[in-house]
Amino acid sequence: MTSVASQPAGRSKARRASAQEGGAVRSGMTLAAYLFLSPYLALFIAFMLLPTLAAVGISFMRWDILGTPEFIGLDNYRQIFADPLFLTAIKNTFYFVFLTAIPMVVLGLALAMLLDQKLKGTAFVRTVVFLPYVVMVSTVGILWGWLFDKGTGLVNYYLTAIGIEPIAWLKDPHWSMPALAITTVWWTVNTNMIIFLAALQDISEELHDAATLDGAGPWQRFVYITLPLLRPAMALVTALTIINGWRVFGQAYVMTQGGPEASTFVIVQYIYLTAFQNFEMGPAAAAGVVLLLITLVFSLAQMKLMKAI
């Protein structure tokens, strides 16, 4: 304090000016940041936030698109929870998340570890692994529909070759969801791989070198260096995988249309058909809100769990 008070007036003035300038620069930078963000923000608000808020509103209305919405309180929520098909959809979607979440994270990490090696041809293999991601869901669905065919499909061809009886993957209610899970893992595990790969490349070589000098083997380095440093990436990947799992739709719609015997009927298909086939916007919006809450709860629980580990 004294030193400041004893400063010559001119210096203090200059400092104030510089502070003001700094403030101006900072606010200028903040403005620039907002400007850079604004295109995304505008689109996000127009096409995500406002429709989401509208959906919450519509979930309390009776509305068939053509008429005037009418407020009916919680009736839509009562209707969907009394609908066995909605409960089946929740159960099926949960089963899908269960089937895909662990392989998506474990396989994503394993692939990333593999492709993080400095071997010849790694760039090519990375491209090959990432390639399915650019294929459209309808193509993926039709392709795997062929692969899973009981009579002529490649999957059963190999199963038969190792002495396993052919499975009617998409026509047997017990196998249809595992078939969708396998398809999904093949199609999307590469995004998890990319995130893990980026995170792996962020880990300093020196840490591994130091640990090696201290006598740590590959497994110890993986457990005590790689895994802890991957925690943020792991949290992100797990959250994204679970959220995407709950939002599954395209594969089920193209490959099985929710069948056989409703075994692959998922929440988003329920929402889509309720809204655009039955034109019951209220119950569809209510189901959307329920899905939002489910993903929120799962994400928060998962985040908490990751912090605890």
Partner: peptide, 20 residues
């Protein structure tokens, strides 16, 4: 909604259950 191709309606689901 009754004869939908793309939805496990009572019609489709029960027909599939009988055939399987």
């Amino acid at each position: 909604s009754v004869f939908s191709f793309d939805k496990p309606t009572p019609l489709v689901t029960n027909l599939q259950a009988a055939l399987s």
